[in-house]
Structure formats: structure tokens, C-alpha cells
């Protein structure tokens, strides 16, 4: 359902462009759980951000539903991000002045129309599902790191996206909490959500159905 073809990306540096990704190709099937692992600096985050349209590649294509998303006009790209793709970052990105529930509802607050009633209901259920029943109206500052990450996952869940992109969602959590989060992602995947997760913890990676190892800007081997 998602296919990357010959992705290349380099960042500008003092000594000219520094290549980070060279010729990366991969496919993600519907309902798959793909883990991307590799050493620090191998380009995992860069690849994930290109797949989730947050970064534009220098060369190559990312095909989703038969279309090259790297060349979509601005409005369609925004619609894609709003509906089909969901992202979870390492640092639980929440707006500090919105409650947990409001943060989860952010994807439904993009216009002047109020968030639909059923979306609010679903948001409550998503928060309950990630184990935050009773904390719907807390501000992020009064939630633990793990709880904040759960809010971010609930936000990805609520819009019933097709693919969830997660960049080290366990990175800032203790191992036990990290395992819970990955377990949660596994549950969601079992319900049909496609997941792409970056991690450098091989223990978590083993939970995935497929692992892609990055080495010096290219996939080394696929297990």
C-alpha cells in the first residue's frame, strides 16, 4: 500500500551535501508492522519522515494509493496528513495548553466547524483504550512521559488512519513503559492498522513482523 522507490536525501553541511539516504526502496503491505532499526545516524528518522511526507526527498518516489505523494499539491498533502497518515514522535508532541482530550481531537479541529460529536466520542474511547480513562481533561504538563506518549498514540488512533508512523515512540520511556507502548502498537496492528516504527532497541524490533536494518543510508538486510 506504501512503496518507496530509489529514495535519496542529503543534508547541506560545511563540506558540501552530506548524503544520508542513497537509493532506498521498500514496500509496506496493508496491515504490516515494519520496524526500522540501525545505528544512530544511519538515516532511520530521515527515511521515516520522507515516508510520512514531513520531509521531501531529493530524488525518488513515495507511492501511496497509486500516487506519488512527494509531488502532491499542498492542499491534497494536508488532506493526506489529516486523514490517512498518523505520526507519533519520540518526544510526545502535544500542545501544552490543550487537555489530553483536546490534543486527541486536534485532527478534527482544522476548520471552523466544531469537532463532530462522534469524533469526540471516539476520542474518549481511544483515550480509554490507551489506558487514560479518567485523565481526559488533564493538561500534558500534569501527565507522565508514558501517559503523554499514550495521548499521542490516541491522537493517531482517533482519525482511523491507514498507516501509523512512529519514530522511537519508546525513546523517552523506561523499559517497562516502553514495552507497554509497543504492546499497544501490536494490538492496534492486530486490528488492521499498518505500522512503521523506528527503534534502535532490537528487543522492541522483534515484536515487528518485518525488520529493516539501515546501515550508512541504505537497507542492509531485511529479516
Amino acid at each position: 500500500m506504501l512503496e518507496a522507490r530509489n529514495i535519496a536525501k542529503s543534508y547541506a553541511s560545511a563540506e558540501g551535501p552530506a548524503p544520508v539516504l542513497r537509493d532506498v526502496s521498500l514496500t509496506l503491505e496493508q496491515g504490516e508492522f515494519l520496524a526500522i532499526v540501525g545505528r544512530s545516524g544511519s538515516g532511520k528518522s530521515t527515511l521515516l519522515n520522507i515516508l510520512s511526507t514531513l520531509l521531501a526527498p531529493d530524488a525518488g518516489q513515495v507511492l501511496y494509493a497509486g500516487r506519488d505523494v512527494t509531488r502532491l499539491p499542498e492542499a491534497e498533502l494536508a488532506a493526506l496528513r489529516r486523514r490517512d497518515f498518523a505520526v507519533v514522535f519520540q518526544m510526545h508532541h502535544l500542545l501544552p495548553y490543550l487537555t489530553a482530550l483536546e490534543n486527541v481531537l486536534l485532527p478534527f479541529m482544522t476548520g471552523l466547524a466544531p469537532a463532530p460529536r462522534d469524533a469526540v466520542e471516539r476520542a474518549r474511547r481511544c483515550l480509554d483504550r490507551v489506558g487514560l480513562g479518567g485523565k481526559h481533561h488533564r493538561l500534558p504538563g500534569r501527565l507522565s512521559g508514558g501517559e503523554q506518549q499514550r495521548v499521542a498514540i490516541a491522537r493517531a488512533l482517533v482519525k482511523e488512519a491507514a498507516i501509523l508512523f512512529a519514530d522511537e515512540p519508546t525513546g523517552s520511556l523506561d523499559p517497562a513503559t516502553g514495552r507497554e507502548i509497543v504492546g499497544l502498537l501490536q494490538d492496534l496492528n492486530a486490528d488492521g492498522l499498518s505500522v512503521v516504527m523506528v527503534t534502535h532497541d532490537l528487543g522492541y524490533a522483534s515484536c515487528a513482523r518485518r525488520v529493516l536494518r539501515m546501515e550508512n543510508g541504505a537497507p542492509a538486510c531485511a529479516a
Binding site: L95, P96, Y97, E102, M109, T110, L112, P114, A115
Partner: peptide, 15 residues
Amino acid sequence: MNLLTIPLRCARRKW
């Protein structure tokens, strides 16, 4: 809750 909730909440928080 809509788009305007964001600036309103922000103004309230950073009053």
C-alpha cells in the same frame, strides 16, 4: 472545539 479553540486556550494559558 474548532480551530479557534487553539488560540483561545493558548491565550488563557499564557495569560
